[in-house]
Simulated scan of single mutants.
Amino acid sequence: MTGHRFGRRAGPALLLLVAAGAAAPGLADPGPAQRAVLDRQAAAARAADAGFVPSAERGRALFMSRPAAGKPDTPSCTSCHTTNLARTGQARAGKVIEPLAPSAVPTRLSDPATVDKWFSRNCPDVLGRDCSPAERADLVAFLIAQ
């Protein structure tokens, strides 16, 4: 069997299962609002690459990555959100951040405007640039699987 069995027209439910690893035991089943946010982010990424499929693993790698060598003052996602997304985090200014995991806070990642706002604020701080549409979709795939 080749890797093209489902082709480029795989339905949103299949994409979500692949992207979020929903078949793996212990992962949260995202709600309709989180699925809609993922579908929206994935559609933006597919505008640049018609064959794009969100990857929770790529999102995990990006989220867990450390600042580049020589840039110790650059935060990483885990600097504020911790590596356990079901736990409370803390911004560099001391503000408490509710857990990112929808399994801990069911409303997390359910509002597209809020998701866009935080990507627009945090990507430049962490990556030194805006996140690409593919990176956003991969990050949402990872986060909704938590």
Rank of each mutant, 00 (worst) to 15 (best):
P99N: 12
A91I: 03
N84L: 14
A47P: 02
K117D: 13
A61P: 00
E98N: 09
R87S: 06
R121L: 15
D49C: 03
A45W: 06
V126H: 06
D111S: 11
R66I: 00
I97W: 03
R46D: 02
S103F: 07
H81P: 12
L62K: 07
T83N: 13
T83G: 10
T83F: 05
V126A: 08
S55M: 00
R87L: 15
K71D: 09
A47R: 09
P99L: 13
R92G: 08
S65V: 00
D111V: 15
F63M: 05
S65M: 00
R108K: 13
P67D: 06
I97R: 05
S103G: 05
F119I: 03
R121P: 00
T107V: 06
V105R: 14
R108T: 08
A68T: 03
C77V: 08
L100Q: 04
K71T: 15
K117P: 01
T107W: 06
K71L: 09
G59P: 02
D111K: 12
R87D: 05
N84M: 12
L100F: 08
A48M: 00
L109F: 13
Q41A: 13
A91N: 14
S120V: 00
P106C: 11
S110Q: 02
S103L: 07
P106L: 12
F63L: 11
Q41E: 08
A44Q: 09
A68M: 08
T74Y: 03
I97K: 14
P99M: 13
G51P: 01
A47F: 01
A68H: 00
R87Y: 10
V115R: 11
C80T: 11
D116R: 02
Q90T: 11
K117R: 14
A42K: 03
A43E: 08
D111W: 01
A113T: 14
T114C: 07
N84Y: 10
S110F: 05
T78K: 09
S103E: 13
S79N: 01
N84R: 11
E98P: 14
T74V: 14
P124Y: 06
C80A: 07
F119W: 03
P75V: 07
P112S: 08
A101D: 10
G89C: 14
A113F: 01
A101M: 07
S65R: 04
K71A: 13
D125A: 10
D73V: 02
T74E: 04
T107Y: 04
P106E: 07
T114H: 04
R108Y: 02
S79E: 02
S120M: 03
D116T: 07
L62H: 07
N84K: 13
S79L: 06
S110V: 13
E98H: 04
S65A: 13
G70T: 10
T114N: 15
T88W: 08
A101T: 10
S65D: 05
G59C: 08
T107L: 05
K117C: 03
E57H: 06
R60P: 02
N122R: 15
D49Q: 06
S79V: 04
R87A: 15
